[in-house]
Design a protein around this nucleic acid. Structure first.
Length: 120
RNA sequence: CGAGAGGUCCAGGCGAUCGCUCCACGUGACUUCUGUCGGCGUGGGGAGGAAAGUCCGGGCACCUCGGAUCAGGAUGGUUGCUAACGGCAACCGGCCGUGAGGCUAGGGAAAGUGCCACAGAGAGAAGACCGCCUACCCCGUGCGCAAGCGCGGGCGGCAAGGGUGAAAGGGUGCGGUAAGAGCGCACCGCGGUCCUGGUGACAGGGCCGGCAGGGUAAACCCCAUCCGGUGAAAGACCAAAUAGGGGAGGCGCAACGGGCGAUGAUCCGCGUCCCGUCUCCCGGGUAGGUCGUUCGAGGCCGGCGGCGACGUCGGUCCCAGAGAAAUGGUCGCCCCCUCCGGUGACGGAGGGACAGAACCCGGCUUAUCGGACCUCUCGCGUC
RNA sequence: GGGCGAUUAACUCAGUGGCUAGAGUGUCUCGUUUACACCGAGAAAGUCGGGGGUUCGAAUCCCUCAUCGCCCA
């Protein structure tokens, strides 16, 4: 499911854990539900022209769709291109998505556990 | 066959499969009875000719409205088309091309002002550097009896030729003259006037004038025509949390005064508020949501009118509606291009332009692989 | 979506129709110094963002394209 509300994005940027690779930058935050949700943030700095920008967006969405079963459940994942003028291919995006999503979600769980200890 | 001119159209095709989004119908669960869902099933729609740049013009929406003068901006051959335009069509003039055709910001320079560097004698009611001439007048001198003839110079004359310049106060030719000159004449150009044709821009012709002060208005300006501002983040509605009192209408003060207004200035009218009082009402608004939002100056086909842009009539079709923003992934066959191997049929690899709707239209401009078709021009060859 | 502005030497900027487009910093060469810096003298460096037009003449005026930046929430 796509993430679209402004508040969801702000919560992710405020509380989320990040991981960066050569293609993607992933921000992960627990959403309290049973499903994983997708947010995309592809700005004009990546590509000036809309065709190339849509290309990146659609490829990210396709990678998310194909690797959905391998992703940690119960997270909102925001995908950001790692560098301007990115020309990604599907295979490497899929591999990096899985790797970074697991890494970021692990960090998010640790962070929450630490917060729980300090609260108690 | 070769070279070229103008225009219309297409934007790789077919299929399978996994997804996204919207719509219709049926159906399930929940429900505050109005809707909600990672619901289910079936069927259907889903980027462009430029969707782009935002250079113009409109629709639509709001701003408390109407007018006058000025300022400001835009446009600039004529006649039309159109909702409108800075767009388009036809025509006129100019320039380019053998031609088909192409380009054209193309009103006014005797309304006024400014500018025209450098060079050059002179650059605007100009001027004589080199040059040409010495007819008239004066001086010197040679020849001659004399009238006179000649040479040099002066006083002067000229603007043909050279030279400068982007530009030198019409051009060519003949006559004329001391040399020259629109000084005279012919033709061309130019100005005025009249006639004819055309709605008009303008064209053609007659007569008169010897020619009348260059260029620049994408310099100021003058003339004619047009123009209110803000833009879907316009705007209408529903409405958590929080804070907490406002809103609508009538009358008077009032023949006073002040503020506000279509947001460049001034003025006039008009409206409205400020103050008092009376009556009535519960609303306003952020997050968020719904509408605006896709049926429209609409597409296609045909008839009629018009040279055409276009208009009109009839039939037919419904054709994207996202919102951190949907059109994508994979596979097969075919098409086109490039490269490699091969004599070849063929095989293999890579590639398929520019580019992505954001309220909607009409244009302009710019980007663009390649292809189809129509009309026309020139050259060569053959019959 | 809408609206403004800028582009001139490697850098920061002048130049608003007319001679070879200038200034500061920087760079290079020479001098000075044992050497370096400072200082002095000199030099190089420009499609004036690209293209087209107006004009005798354009960095300057007009049109168009490109790039960069800012504002409206």
């Amino acid at each position: 499911m796509r993430l679209r509300r402004r508040g969801d994005f702000e919560r992710a940027y405020r509380e989320g854990s990040r991981a960066r690779g050569s293609v993607l930058r992933v921000v992960a935050v627990e959403n309290g539900g049973p499903w994983t949700r997708l947010g995309l943030s592809v700005g004009r700095r990546v590509w000036r022209h809309a065709v190339q920008r849509n290309r990146v967006r659609r490829l990210f969405r396709e990678a998310f769709r194909l690797e959905y079963a391998s992703l940690p459940a119960g997270f909102d994942l925001i995908l950001i291109p790692a560098q301007p003028r990115l020309r990604p291919d599907l295979d490497s995006t899929r591999r990096e998505l899985v790797r970074l999503a697991r890494k970021a979600s692990r960090r998010a769980r640790e962070k929450r556990a630490r917060a729980g200890e300090e609260a108690s």
